[in-house]
Design a protein around this nucleic acid. Sequence first.
DNA 1: GCGATGATTGATACGAGGTATCACTGATGC
DNA 2: GCATCAGTGATACCTCGTATCAATCATCGC
Lengths: 143, 143
Amino acid sequence: MPALEAIEGALEARGYRVTPARRAVLQAILSRPEHFTAEEVMRRARAGRATVFRTVRLLCELGLLCRVLLEDGRLHYRLLGPRRHHHHLVCVECGRVQDLEECAVGGLVRELASATGYEIQGHWLEFYGRCLSCREPDQGGVR
Amino acid sequence: MPALEAIEGALEARGYRVTPARRAVLQAILSRPEHFTAEEVMRRARAGRATVFRTVRLLCELGLLCRVLLEDGRLHYRLLGPRRHHHHLVCVECGRVQDLEECAVGGLVRELASATGYEIQGHWLEFYGRCLSCREPDQGGVR
DNA sequence: GCGATGATTGATACGAGGTATCACTGATGC
DNA sequence: GCATCAGTGATACCTCGTATCAATCATCGC
């Protein structure tokens, strides 16, 4: 999980200024351990609607945030460490997200391409379930 | 691809009435070979906004429509034949959708479950690329 | 220091896509 | 014939964004 300074450094390194508004958005984001909506950031950061959305988009473009797709189709965002293409395993009860470091469909993509003739350029893959802590009540009991 | 009568039968079998408004929505849907938005159905069917959305949701719940996730996170809908769980390969140029009958991540789900302790309940998997016809200009030419 | 320039901001309007409300309608059961 | 209830559609509202645009702020050359 990158610290505030690291993100600000990444912004500056790419020629973006670190302004009070951007810092407020970043702090709001850093205070959320899991995924969040832009709306949540707006409530926490004292920054205008447009600025929040612009900053979130910017961070996505710079690879500092990633999008998390929820089961119902909504998009959330999530701070990204220094990692590349990956997928998520989302707990539908507590919202915890587990990053899956390896992309498991690389081989499948090649198979599909030769079977269908498509030139495959991208994919979405997200998993949903209940994490260990949310399952615990199920497991300990005699029932 | 189910016919109008088949869908109406499925509705009636579950205790839903086949009304003129629902039939209009169904006809609008049947006239779209690929995926569509609820908005497109509204333009084609002479039915109110709420009715269109309600009908689309109903058909999803009954398993007669499926949701297609586009690369940018938007949701489209698509008529579903008599098939079960499947995934999509979407052409980003012409919008053509190829259904992938086999769910390729079943094994992966079991692996993930034992590795993470999650009880995995669902997943999204959609592929994006360019279909054969859209690639043709690339391929035939000398260039 | 000063003006020009360009990045950034935030209020606001707008748009897609969808839900909630509620009075009304029309079919159905008794 | 009447009560009931599913279905309808106008409307308001919500979420999650983008576009616009005047104002502001930092920086740079002079």
